[in-house]
């Protein structure tokens, strides 16, 4: 049954969707523009994309306990980060030209 306690299984993408307010924070008296949430989640998704690879080396932290282990995981993820940078650049370029094309580029 896919009913989960939020403390155990929150993915980064879920958390970002919830804690970022449609890209703009206006509740405080300092106004901050944060990058488009969708773009941001895609970026972050790419950073943590190789779930399978991470699982191989026992880094399935987002499935077990993202909260306690997020620090450690980030280090591991940095390597993936480099690998994925190229893909991200490509993605961003295509987003700039036509956001609807992303799905195609990613296949």
């Amino acid at each position: 049954m896919p009913i989960e306690q939020s403390t155990r299984s929150d993915s980064i993408v879920d958390v970002l969707e919830l804690v970022l307010d449609k890209g703009v924070v206006i509740a405080g008296d300092i106004r901050v523009n944060i990058a488009d949430v969708e773009l941001l989640t895609i970026k972050i998704r790419l950073i943590v994309a190789s779930v399978d690879k991470a699982k191989e080396i026992g880094m399935d932290w987002w499935e077990s306990d993202p909260f306690l282990n997020s620090q450690a995981a980030r280090k591991e993820v940095e390597d993936e980060n480099r690998e994925l940078k190229e893909r991200l650049e490509k993605l961003e370029n295509s987003m700039a030209s036509d956001r609807t094309q992303i799905g195609e580029d990613n296949k």
């Binding site: 958390v15 804690v19 106004r31 944060i34 997020s70 980030r74």
Partner: peptide, 28 residues
């Protein structure tokens, strides 16, 4: 966390990930 710094930092996914998670954990 100033306006200019935030603009820059919000392009840094690792930074956002760390800080946004901290925010969320704190609220939990």
């Amino acid at each position: 966390f100033g306006e200019t710094a935030m603009e820059e930092n919000s392009n840094n996914t690792a930074w956002i990930q760390e800080k946004a998670f901290h925010h969320h954990e704190a609220l939990l």
